[in-house]
């Protein structure tokens, strides 16, 4: 009987602690969620300006059917350029890799930037993303992966391909 009471007390205490912690986190989330959303939006806005510096107008397009799941949003900039926001992961990734790609009307990459990366700190902050500038859906695969961060650069390359394919699908849909 005494042992059973002990077990019941253990369950009650653990449950109560879990509930209190959850409530505390819910309150914190209530206050920080809008600030976090704003910070993320600003980060995406900054990345759009990085890949397409001269931006006069921007509108969000509907992601075409058949686009890869890594494509999170597509923007039509200045009525002729495309900016694709992607989130992908590598085999060993501990968090999403955020990438924004600028694509011209003729389907060539105008700029690439890595917005979030949770692995080796140097990848994406050097000149590696610039290797994709000028490439299109047929030539992006020619860019080599990055030694030392092979899986991340493979995931990066695949995401670039997904962005190019998504824009092709979008253009195809618009023409059709």
């Amino acid at each position: 009987m005494k042992k059973m009471n002990g077990n019941v007390k253990s369950v009650i205490v653990l449950t109560a602690i879990c509930l209190i912690v959850t409530a505390l986190l819910a309150v914190t989330n209530h206050f920080t969620a809008p600030v976090i959303k704003d910070a993320r939006d600003k980060k995406i806005e900054r990345s759009l300006k990085t890949v397409i510096p001269e931006m006069y107008s921007i509108r969000e397009a509907v992601i075409p059917e058949g686009a890869a799941s890594t494509v999170k949003s597509i923007y039509i900039v200045n009525d002729e350029l495309y900016a694709v926001v992607l989130a992908t992961t590598s085999a060993y990734s501990s968090g999403d890799m955020g990438i924004t790609v600028g694509i011209s009307a003729d389907g060539r990459i105008t700029g690439v930037t890595l917005t979030s990366y949770f692995e080796s700190k140097d990848f994406g902050k050097d000149t590696y993303p610039n290797n994709y500038i000028g490439k299109d859906v047929n030539s992006y695969a020619d860019v080599d992966t990055f030694s030392g961060v092979t899986y991340s650069s493979m995931a990066f390359k695949k995401a670039i391909g997904d962005a190019l394919q998504a824009v092709e699908l979008l253009k195809g849909g618009a023409e059709g």
């Binding site: 253990s10 205490v13 602690i17």
Partner: peptide, 12 residues
């Protein structure tokens, strides 16, 4: 906190 569940409680 009972001894038997102290580690889960600490982790939470």
């Amino acid at each position: 906190i009972p001894d038997t569940v102290r580690i889960p409680c600490y982790i939470v």
